[in-house]
Amino acid sequence: MTPLPSDDDVLAPYDAVLLVSFGGPEAPDEVMPFLRRVTAGRDVPEERLLDVAAHYDHFGGRSPINDQNRALVAALTDEIARRGSDVPVLWGNRNSDPFLADTLRAARAEGLLRLCVVLTSAYSSYSSCRQYRENLAAATEELGVAAADLVIDKVRPYAVHPGFVAVNTEALVEAIADLPENGDASTRLLFVTHSVPEAMDDTSGPGDGEGNLYVDQHLRVGALVAEGLRERTGRDLQHELVFCSRSGSPRTPWLEPDVNDRITELAAEGVTTVVVAPIGFVSDHMEVVNDLDREARATAERLGVRFVRVPTAGTHPVFVETLVDLVEERAAEARGEVVLPAHADSGDLRPSVCDAGCCPNLREALPALCGRD
């Protein structure tokens, strides 16, 4: 869905698009400072940080996420230009250079005052939405009076957007093309996402007491992707949702099952092939290349189970077009136009301005941008 522009520029009134991401280290000496920033205020033991830091050793102390974001910035810039706009694409991270406050300071200096934010996180929860909004608020607070005339909006969560679903479906179709259909009964499709504390899932979504939107969105995306697979190929793989990258205190309940535990159980049940589709991630960053490509693959190989990993959306042209569509949609809203996305009647649509109490911070109340509280 691409709204019709009411101005010469399809992205008016925005001066720039701001890609906001998690960030990651790009050299060995950056790993521990990065991990300390990520876990600040959470009393994570130093030993645990050292364990996590060891994951980066397998990749030369460099996370792939920043390179992924550089490629995405370039792809978004090209797509925006293709649509006849010269609005620049900026990039800021929560936990590594380029830091959000620095990016906002540079934007302000260039006279880019009205920004539309795109998150490299598609789902609804504290860690995948509100925490980014808190970081935006903290960045503007760091700028002080220099941020007074900045206007920052955000596109809506886009996990169930037909474009995101289509890219994940296409990736799955291509990934299993070489698998014989007569083996489908002994094949399991595992949709994978980042585990979060159960309490975070319980409070994800609007502040109306319903909760569990984080898991519900993943289940919905998985069902849509599996349905797309059936429609395109006639193949009906048994599928389920599993999790990776658990961290934090072992006393805190986190979403399960872990992908490695589930592969172990499936092998005992006679499953001979696992197809791992990381629908919870938009690019191949550390949780994908370490937790899936290295650790889960090793688990499968140890058990004699064939391991097939489906690519993430990355810079797939349809995904890039989807993100720019979302910016155009948000621009239309900012211009006061009525916007009705094609899938508005699906029940899965989330607002671009978060409701009060949506996906709350359970540790402390912090200001957050792009919401009603």
Rank of each mutant, 00 (worst) to 15 (best):
R232P: 12
D184Q: 08
L219Q: 15
G205P: 01
L241D: 07
V274T: 02
E295I: 15
P257T: 00
T273I: 02
N260V: 11
E295Q: 14
E256C: 12
A298W: 01
E265L: 13
C244L: 10
W254T: 03
V196P: 06
P257D: 07
V288Q: 04
S204K: 03
R294W: 02
R220T: 15
A223G: 11
D202V: 13
R294I: 13
E231S: 13
L255F: 06
T272S: 15
G183M: 05
A226N: 10
V308Y: 05
E240R: 04
M200E: 14
E256G: 15
M286Y: 08
V308A: 00
R220P: 00
R188Q: 13
D208F: 12
H218F: 13
P253G: 01
F281K: 08
E269L: 10
T233H: 06
S204M: 00
L219C: 14
G228K: 05
E198W: 06
F243E: 06
H194S: 02
A296C: 03
T193L: 07
V196G: 05
R306C: 05
D236E: 14
V308L: 01
T233C: 04
V274C: 09
R306P: 02
L189K: 08
E181H: 12
W254G: 01
G207W: 05
E265I: 11
F243C: 03
L241G: 04
V289E: 11
T252L: 14
T299Y: 08
G270Y: 11
L229P: 12
E181Q: 15
E210I: 15
V271T: 14
T187W: 07
V274N: 04
I263Q: 02
T312F: 04
G209C: 09
E301K: 02
R235G: 10
E240A: 09
T193M: 13
T252S: 02
E210H: 14
R294Y: 04
G211C: 06
G207V: 04
V282A: 11
N212A: 15
G280I: 10
C244N: 15
C244F: 13
D261W: 00
E269M: 09
D236N: 13
L303F: 04
A226C: 08
A313P: 09
E287G: 10
F281W: 00
A267T: 11
M286H: 10
G222V: 10
T272G: 10
A298G: 08
V192S: 13
R309E: 06
V271K: 09
D291Y: 11
R297T: 13
V215D: 09
L229T: 05
S249Y: 08
R230V: 15
F191E: 03
V196S: 00
V215W: 05
T203C: 04
L219M: 14
D293A: 12
